[in-house]
Design a protein around this nucleic acid. Sequence first.
DNA 1: GCAAAAGTGTTGTGTATACACCCATGG
DNA 2: CCATGGGTGTATACACAACACTTTTGC
Lengths: 235, 235
Amino acid sequence: MATTDQLLDCSDPLVNPGPRVDVRVVLFTVSAGRLLVALQEQGTCRALPLGSPSPAESLDAAGTRLLADHVGIAERYLEQLYSISHCSEDQWTVTVTYLALAFAGDAGPSLNTAAWCDVGSLPEMDSVDRKIFDYALLRLRAKLGYTTIAFHLLPPSFSLSDLQIIYEAVLDREVDKRNFRRSIHAAGVLEGTGLTRREGSHRPAGLYRFRAGHNAETYLTPSWASSTEEGVRNP
Amino acid sequence: MATTDQLLDCSDPLVNPGPRVDVRVVLFTVSAGRLLVALQEQGTCRALPLGSPSPAESLDAAGTRLLADHVGIAERYLEQLYSISHCSEDQWTVTVTYLALAFAGDAGPSLNTAAWCDVGSLPEMDSVDRKIFDYALLRLRAKLGYTTIAFHLLPPSFSLSDLQIIYEAVLDREVDKRNFRRSIHAAGVLEGTGLTRREGSHRPAGLYRFRAGHNAETYLTPSWASSTEEGVRNP
DNA sequence: GCAAAAGTGTTGTGTATACACCCATGG
DNA sequence: CCATGGGTGTATACACAACACTTTTGC
């Protein structure tokens, strides 16, 4: 059906006996109220950080290693999203995609081989990577509503306003302060440190941390690792 | 670190330059009020139906083809679950797993190379396949609560009691008839065929079908294919 | 005293749950 | 007339959205 002479045909089993497998990570952070994603330079386009898994490690471990090596980030959260099969440059590839979250200081964390890009004004990207990114953002926004992953975008101690800024940056819309604080308190995952933070000519903000034992996030979509031990909770 | 002499070491890149990729499907059906899963004979254990993807097709297409070829089922629903990396028999393998649903008649649909097993009394299974199965069942049960996938376990025309039996079989618990019917009607995805079905010494059951235009299920976890077109709905 | 962010309550509206009886039919 | 499954309504509790003002501080 396809002509194998003029260019390599990645659907020809003689040319490609098995697919290449790679792992790509969509790493988000929030800095100064803006949602950012880590992208690597790749010619004219930008691309998602990617790597190859090795036989001795799980795919999750490959994602973690990828972030540590290429991005220089100790990620706070890593979740597998989806796997796709595609042909790029006559190379049959199966790509396993991940969503990752990291805390960024005010200046943003430094990256090794990647750079932070504002999600509101993305550069040109490879079309496959662009679809992966769109899906990752869709999942991240949906999960904010029924999980506690937002905390992974914050330092260990934070104010409720800090947390609200995370929600507003990811969702790209304002949220009501009173309803927001009520729902956070009702979730029961925070405990006050006795401390406050004074940083301007206004009332100091109370600081909070996670409650120990609630670091196990209440995900409706449980992780693979936890699926055999505990069931789904209906909170 | 590992001794490569006495047995093949699947973590040695010289032995295995890249992983094998396979696709495994957890196919459920409900027959006579029992939740069943399709398993293949494999020596002493049973195993999930599996196949290899080809470069020209998507992974989803590979799953569909796998069901059509090996199982003889035209599945009604197929959803990717998770991908894992594992070593079995010194073969490094990346497995992409799928959840599938099919309608079974009263006798259950016939299978080519697989057999239906009652989920309540499963035979011995390969440990990797067992974990995949556990995860699939966990996801299926969770998704019943906020999606319409249950309809894929029914023929085109069905009674509300038929539908309730599906829910009870999958969830393995009774549900309240009035609340169930109210929530189904409120979802607005059904329309009555004018028909009824008489099949015993009792009042005949009204028959329903999907409303056209609502075959696009309201998934909180949107499929990969739809992620770039439409956002997440909050019903 | 004023600017600036922190913090706090009430009300309505919709949604989920618990619960018991009459209806139509076949035998 | 009776056994069987089909079909219906109401009261209550809880979750969520809309909405405005007082408090504490730095300058």
